[in-house]
Structure formats: structure tokens, C-alpha cells
Amino acid sequence: MSKFKKKSATSQDIPTAALPDIIFMLLFFFMVTTVLRQDEPEVEQRFPDATQLSKIEKKSLVSYIYVGKPRNIDLYGKEARIQVNDVLIDKEEVAQFVNEERDKLEEAEKMQLTLNLKVDNNVKMGIVSDLQFELRKANARKILYTALPRGME
């Protein structure tokens, strides 16, 4: 009666044949649910919390404007700046950007252009208000302030 005799001869291997399938499933999930980002923000982007959030209805009508302190302080300084399409611009150039974005839309949708303002938490209202004034001048009056959902009330 040997004490050290193995009791059974069952295989100790876990079958790994299905592993690639599982990984592929994960891969497809990520490929489908994510979108490659269009712009690389050159300014700091941390958003405020809010409760009354709405979703964007039609993505093709939305253009993005980023506002925040530049990440590269040596090059652009410490003051908050406006960024569109990977470049930092002055507020006088906003109207031009709006018109370019509007030209991309169909005739019937031109007035429905929505500007998504991605403004950093630490920005002061001065620059935001200047930006909004320029948008009003350019008659782009639908805006959406990006904000994060706040936890529990």
C-alpha cells in the first residue's frame, strides 16, 4: 500500500484551444466600441461635474473647441488658450473656424452646427465669454459644455 501513489491519471492540463477565440471576442468588442480620437488636445483637459447632462444627438453636426492651459508651457505660455484642429488659435480666428466647419455640412444642416466646448476646470470665465461672443458673432449659437456625470446626489 503505497502512500505516494497518484490516485488518478486525469490530465492536469487546462485546455487552451479556446483561448484565441476568447481573446478575439475581446478584441472585436474593443474594436467596435471605441473610436479613434480625432484631435490631440494641446491644452489641459479636466472637466467639471454636472447632473443635467444631455447626449449629442447627431455626431456629424458637432465640432470641437478646446480651451485650457497649454500643456507645453515653454512654447505657449501659462495663459489659457483656445485650440481647434490641433492648433492653438486667437479668439479672432474662431469665426473662420466656424465657417470652415459649416462649409462641411449639408445645406439644410448648416444652421444646426453644434459647438462642443471642451473647457478645462481651472479656466476663468473671461476667455470662455470672449469665445462665446465670437461664436454669437459667427451665428453659431448651439453649444454644449462637456461635463462629467456627478456621482450620487
Binding site: F30, T34, K142
Partner: peptide, 23 residues
């Protein structure tokens, strides 16, 4: 899988809407 995990961001396109007054 790792390539896609690293290169993509899940967009947060939620926010507060506002209609600006005419100029």
C-alpha cells in the same frame, strides 16, 4: 488587443446644452 486598448479612448460626449442669444 493591446494595440486597440492603448490607442483608443472611450469618448465622453455628454454635456450641458445651451443656446446663445443672437448677436
Amino acid at each position: 488587443l493591446i494595440f486597440f486598448l492603448v490607442t483608443t479612448t472611450i469618448p465622453n460626449d455628454k454635456g450641458i446644452t445651451l443656446q446663445l442669444p443672437p448677436y
